[in-house]
Every structure is written in structure tokens, then in C-alpha cells.
């Protein structure tokens, strides 16, 4: 073993014949870090730097301004409605798919993933086709004075579409590997269906559920394309945070745009931190055997 090889710490499980020379390792690490630095780290830093460019006063003023507060409120409300609904759907879908064997399961799995492969803009467009003035229910909605497009319901339903698969995606694989023995035992001991879900299944998947909710929430609060199509951009009324950022940016109020953006970037960082914590818990729960 060369002395140089010992300096760059290689994982102990890899012996010398199956790893690269030290200079190759260093070069590859440098390339990877340069690529990630250029495309990930620098943009993230830039958000906060641009937000604080004109000082803390400008930063705070941009956030407590009434239109910004209205946008923050709307974003929170839309997420507060869409995330729990997708959460209930995720648990129901996972219960049916993971605990029962039925025809058409693979097709159902593909259909649940479908929103991931639809462009956000098209997701917005389809709800305009259904609920818009010239859409299927357009006349009926107008006659009954119900506003969906260019109002909160449209924003919520577009957000639900975009974040549709997140919770189900996290729960299904985990619940499939956990099998049904524990639920069957609970059943034999006389538990009702709701008792089984509440006392056996959900505790077993609680970290994966939390992770799904976190991802779902991050996407719900940050969704731009779909919401942009259905919101109508009415300032102070139907502007979510990402749309408010767009308006500020197009008005050349860069510091204010980045100030609001920094809140969402903070949320993204929080999401990443929570993800690490939850992943450790899931790993710990898995290695600690099923309780």
C-alpha cells in the first residue's frame, strides 16, 4: 500500500485493488463538488445574499407589507387544505394496495404516479377546461355564483393535483414490506378495522407518513406553474407566495422578491433537515425489527 493512498481516507470495506489511485479520487471529489457548488450551493446562497443586499430594513418591510402577508396567508391556507386531503388519500390507497391482493393493482400504481409526469402548466390548464367559464361546469358555476377558477378553490384543487402522489408513494412500499401479519393478529384478537389502522398500521409507518407529509407540504407551498394558470394573479387576493415573487420580480423590486423567496428557501432547507432526521428514524425503526 502506498503512503499517498493512506492519506485520502478510503472506506475500509474497499481494498486497494478495487479503488482508484488517490489523485483520481481527489479529482473526482473536486469535480463533483464543483458541479454541485455551481448548480446548487451558489444559487441557494444567492437567494439570501440578494434578499439582504439592501439591508435588513428593506428585507423586513418586504415581508410585512400587506400584499406579501396576504400571499403568505393564502399559501398557508392552500397547503392546510390540500396536504391533509392527500394524506387521507395516501393512507387509504396504501391500505388497499399494500394489504390486499387484487386485479389491476399495477395499473392503479401507475395512475397514482401520473401527476408526476404532467407538466404543472397542463395541470392548471385541465382545471380551466373543467371549471373555467367555457369549461364543462362553467355556465352552471356562473349561474350559481360559485367561483373556482381565479379563486381559492381553483388554487387548492391545482395544488392537490400536483402533490397527489407524495404521501401514497412513501407509504405503499413500506407497508408492502411490512406485510399483514400484525394486522391479522389484531383482527383475530377482536380489533375493529379503525382500531387496526390507528393502533397497529399507522404507528408502524409514522415516520414514512411524516416524511410524505413534509415533501407534500414543501411542494404545495412552492407550486408555481399550475397555480399560476388558475389563480388569475389578483394582488392581495389570489396571489400565493411564488406568484407574489414573480410579480415583484417583474416590477424590478428585486430585493423584495428575494426577501419573499428567502422564506420559501428557508422552508426548503427545513424540509431537507427534517428529511435527514426522518430517514434516520426510518432506518432505526427498520433495523430495530418490527415491534
Amino acid at each position: 500500500m502506498s503512503a499517498v493512498g493512506a492519506i485520502v481516507a478510503a472506506p475500509p470495506r474497499v481494498s486497494d485493488a478495487t479503488t482508484e489511485p488517490a489523485w483520481v479520487r481527489r479529482a473526482l471529489i473536486a469535480v463533483a463538488l464543483a458541479f454541485l457548488g455551481l448548480f446548487l450551493f451558489v444559487p441557494l446562497v444567492a437567494v439570501f445574499a440578494e434578499a439582504l443586499k439592501k439591508g435588513v430594513d428593506v428585507y423586513l418591510a418586504a415581508i410585512v407589507e400587506p400584499d406579501a402577508l396576504a400571499a403568505i396567508r393564502l399559501t398557508l391556507v392552500a397547503a392546510a387544505i390540500s396536504v391533509p386531503l392527500n394524506c387521507v388519500f395516501g393512507v387509504a390507497a396504501a391500505w388497499a394496495i399494500a394489504k390486499f391482493d387484487f386485479r389491476g393493482k399495477n395499473l392503479l400504481l401507475t395512475l397514482i404516479d401520473l401527476p408526476f409526469s404532467v407538466s404543472p402548466v397542463i395541470a392548471g390548464l385541465i382545471f380551466v377546461l373543467v371549471f373555467g367559464l367555457q369549461g364543462w361546469f362553467g355556465e352552471w358555476l356562473r349561474d350559481h355564483d360559485v367561483k373556482i377558477i381565479f379563486a381559492l378553490p381553483g388554487i387548492v384543487i391545482a395544488t392537490i393535483f400536483i402533490t397527489f402522489p407524495f404521501v401514497a408513494r412513501e407509504l405503499i412500499p413500506l407497508m408492502q414490506t411490512q406485510g399483514i401479519e400484525q394486522e391479522e393478529a389484531a383482527r383475530v384478537l377482536g380489533a375493529s378495522g379503525w382500531q387496526i389502522v390507528r393502533r397497529v398500521t399507522l404507528p408502524n409507518v409514522r415516520w414514512a407518513l411524516l416524511y410524505g407529509v413534509i415533501l407534500c407540504n414543501a411542494r404545495a407551498m412552492g407550486e408555481f406553474g399550475a397555480v399560476s394558470v388558475v389563480s388569475g394573479h389578483i394582488r392581495g387576493q389570489t396571489n400565493t407566495m411564488p406568484l407574489h415573487i414573480e410579480i415583484l420580480y417583474n416590477e424590478y423590486q428585486f430585493a423584495a422578491a428575494f426577501a419573499v423567496a428567502s422564506l420559501l428557501a428557508g422552508l426548503a432547507l427545513l424540509t431537507l433537515v427534517l428529511k435527514i432526521v426522518v430517514e434516520r428514524r426510518v432506518a432505526a425503526q427498520a433495523s430495530g425489527a418490527t415491534r
Binding site: P43, V47, G222, F224, M241, P242, A261, L264, K275
Partner: peptide, 10 residues
């Protein structure tokens, strides 16, 4: 995790 609009302006 980062909203696309934030990435866009950055």
C-alpha cells in the same frame, strides 16, 4: 425542495 420560482430568480 426549493420552489421553482425561487430557483428561477436566483
Amino acid at each position: 425542495a426549493l420552489p421553482t420560482a425561487v430557483a428561477g430568480i436566483a
